[in-house]
């Protein structure tokens, strides 16, 4: 199965997402802030990134921009997760077919479906 990178500053969220994605047979690595996300994604070259938006260091969307410059995205699909209102978050999230946006609390069923779709 695939290598998925999770970027979130909330340890509990990282933990539950890791458990869930591993239960679905994926390998999971994680980082706790936007800056680490933009660096580690270039090292680990994950098949998929699950990223929070509001994080210390750099926002998930900022990390996305630097990864875009490095040519990692949009080749690598990204699922943004956020507790910010979705209408608002939609304005800052890049609008392309390889990006998804899910609200927190993340519905694990929807996440599963999105992961499957983007890795297909």
């Amino acid at each position: 199965m695939a290598l998925i990178m999770i970027a979130d500053d909330d340890d509990a969220i990282v933990s539950v997402l890791t458990d869930f994605l591993e239960s679905r047979g994926h390998r999971v690595v994680s980082v706790g802030d936007g800056m680490a996300a933009s660096i580690k994604a270039q090292d680990w070259k994950p098949a998929l990134i699950v990223s929070d938006i509001v994080m210390p260091g750099a926002y998930g969307t900022s990390a996305y921009k630097s990864l875009e410059n490095a040519g990692i995205v949009p080749k690598t699909p990204v699922i943004f997760i956020t507790s910010v209102e979705l209408e608002k978050a939609r304005k800052v999230v890049p609008d392309n077919p390889r990006t998804r946006l899910l609200g927190k609390p993340v519905d694990l069923g929807k996440l599963d479906a999105a992961v499957k779709e983007l890795l297909a």
């Binding site: 539950v16 458990d19 609390p105």
Partner: peptide
């Protein structure tokens, strides 16, 4: 909302048999 979200997701994960 952060901690509540985490609680809800953990509950969801348990419920889904993770």
């Amino acid at each position: 909302r952060g901690p509540v979200n985490a609680m809800l997701m953990v509950t969801d994960a348990i419920r889904m048999g993770v």
